[in-house]
Amino acid sequence: MPQIFHHSTNALAKITIYGAVFIGVALLWVAVELNRSSWNTGQWVEKQQPVQFSHKHHVGDDGIDCRYCHTSVETSASAGMPSTNTCMSCHRQIWADSPYLEPVRASLRDQKPIEWIRVHDLPDYAYFNHSIHVNKGVGCSTCHGRVDDMPIAFQAATLQMEWCLECHRKPERFLRPNDKIFDMTWRSENKNAAEIQQGIGWKADYKVQGPEVLTSCSTCHR
């Protein structure tokens, strides 16, 4: 009986089988990278808002503190969004007839809150509290990036669990002194040994819990 396959087919079969492994790995890699990409996480994607509000102007140029508008950031889970009255504190006189501000004036006229588009949308199964973070040495810009440089607000981090755990495992890498929490220009990360050492000091000052508590499932999934 003649050979059905030529002898060289053996090599072909081997290459195909090995190739399948590589293709499998490659597909897995693509899947993982897609999962982390901004296409999936929304990172870097600028969100158009009903009002063309620029953090770059208000924070960067005018030097208004974060807490002027986000008043509850130190005391509650939500950082708080400013009411229309807060906008109007200044804009009743400044830029009072600008067409850009018509949605704000309309909001005040009709007594209807402006419906901002949420930029940071955590999944509902993740519990997050702003106050504990800003009171224990996590600065605004650590998670939100250089907001003072954002004409249109976008999500600076992936907000994925691996990103949360980066800090929950080693808080000393990201902590800062408590008078620099709202400082946009403070370093984004404690990198060298000296900075890490400072971070360990702040971690002790703030009595930050150990990783066994910070990475416990129920700390965030409660």
Partner: peptide, 25 residues
């Protein structure tokens, strides 16, 4: 004060904060 007042009343309280410089009364 540095959060809420300084924007108009200024760092020294002279009433020359950034918002005043931008045109507020």
């Amino acid at each position: 004060y540095d959060i809420f007042c300084v924007v108009c009343h200024g760092m020294t309280g002279n009433g020359d904060g950034m918002i005043v410089r931008r045109g507020f009364r």
